[in-house]
Every structure is written in structure tokens, then in C-alpha cells.
Amino acid sequence: MLRALIYLLPLALTIYAFIDCLNTPEDEAKHLPKLAWVFIILLFWIVGPIVWFAAGKLRVPPAGGRTPSEWHRNHRTTWVAPDDNPDFLKSIKDENARDESLLKDWEADLRRREDEMKRREDGAGSGDASS
């Protein structure tokens, strides 16, 4: 049982560090590029993961948050979905109002043109009958 633990514990630590390194954004990896950290974690079985956790990653959330790691200890720093953002919803309402106004202007212009065409047809039709 103890022999299994001797192999499973470092393996679990390596797998956890490997997944953590892969999920870390490139700009949060310290001292080395992320690819170098992946090789260190995989090649140096016990020491690599320990060094990664000790010195390889920024442990403070970036200012302003980011996606997909925008949840830091159950604290949301940015909007998750557009329908949760009041600024986005307001912009949709404003855009809808502009579209409605534009549509009304087009409809009024269309009615004016149709009326103008009817007047021309009526004028041309009465002019032909009197000749």
C-alpha cells in the first residue's frame, strides 16, 4: 500500500501541475514561457511540479478579470453574459430606437413618393383625356 502511495502521490501532483499550467494564460506564467514550464513539469517528475507551484505562476488575479478565468474564489470581476450587462442592454435599446426611427422615416418617405406618383398619374391621366 505504501509503495503505491509513493508512486501515486507524485503522479497526482504532476498531473495536477500539468493541467494547472495548461489552463494558465501565457501572461501569468512567470520567469519562463509556458511551453518551457510544461516540459519542466513533465521531465522533472517530482521537482518540476513543486517548482511550478512555488515560482511558475502569478497567484494574484489580474486586474479587471479575464475570460475564461474570470471567477477568482467565487468573485466575478467582469460580466459573464451580455444579458447580464446593463450597458449592453441599454445599447440594444438605443439601437432599437434608432432603427425604429429610421424605419418610420423610410415609411414616411415611401408614402410621400407614392402620393407624388399618384398625383403625377392623375395629372397625366386628366391631361390625356382633355387632349
Rank of each mutant, 00 (worst) to 15 (best):
L2D: 10
R3Q: 11
A4D: 12
A4T: 08
I6M: 15
Y7I: 12
L9C: 13
P10H: 09
A12D: 07
I15D: 04
Y16S: 12
F18Q: 02
D20W: 01
C21P: 00
L22N: 04
L22E: 03
P25E: 07
D27C: 05
E28K: 08
E28D: 12
H31M: 11
P33W: 09
L35A: 13
I40V: 06
L43H: 03
V47Y: 03
G48I: 00
G48T: 00
W52H: 00
F53I: 00
A54G: 04
A54Y: 02
A54L: 09
A54I: 03
G56T: 01
L58V: 10
L58Q: 15
P61H: 13
P62E: 10
A63C: 08
G64N: 03
E70P: 01
W71V: 06
H72R: 08
R73Q: 15
T78E: 10
T78K: 15
W79P: 00
V80Q: 11
V80Y: 14
A81R: 11
A81M: 13
P82R: 14
D84E: 13
P86M: 10
F88V: 09
L89A: 11
S91H: 09
K93A: 11
E95Y: 13
A97S: 09
D99V: 11
L103T: 07
K104I: 03
K104Q: 12
W106E: 14
W106D: 10
D109T: 06
L110H: 05
L110V: 03
R111D: 11
R111G: 01
R112L: 07
D115F: 05
E116F: 07
M117Q: 10
M117R: 14
D122I: 06
D122G: 02
D122N: 07
G127R: 13
A129T: 05
A129E: 08
